[in-house]
Amino acid sequence: MELLVASAIGIMTAAGLYLVLRLRTFPVILGISLLTYAVNVFLFASGRLTVGASPVLRDDVTVYTDPLPQALVLTAIVISFGMTAVVVMIGLGAFLGSNDDHVDDQPEEGKP
């Protein structure tokens, strides 16, 4: 199970990094989203993996998973939505203003 989660984090990170290194805004935004997933799962996994032990207190249960990473990741998910929205807006604004969705400065006409 640990192997599955660790490899999922690794694969999502790799794919996210590759997309972040692309030249247009849309893939870069997708890449950031993938990286967000990877980071959130990574933080969540820092509480170690437990199956069937939700951190909701019950009278006859003594084993619970670590609640703290969950609380941290919960707000991180919502904040990352806000950040994604801002980045999308910036990318969209740049595209609408210049009709160009490159993330890099383009060499100006007549200059090498």
């Binding site: 640990e2 192997l3 989660v5 660790a6 490899s7 984090i9 690794g10 694969i11 990170t13 790799a14 794919a15 990094l17 990877a38 990574f42 996994a45 820092s46 170690r48 993996l49």
Partner: peptide, 12 residues
């Protein structure tokens, strides 16, 4: 990817 995989795998 390999780096994050190795890191998570080790601490898990």
């Amino acid at each position: 990817g390999i780096a994050t995989f190795a890191l998570s795998y080790h601490f898990l």
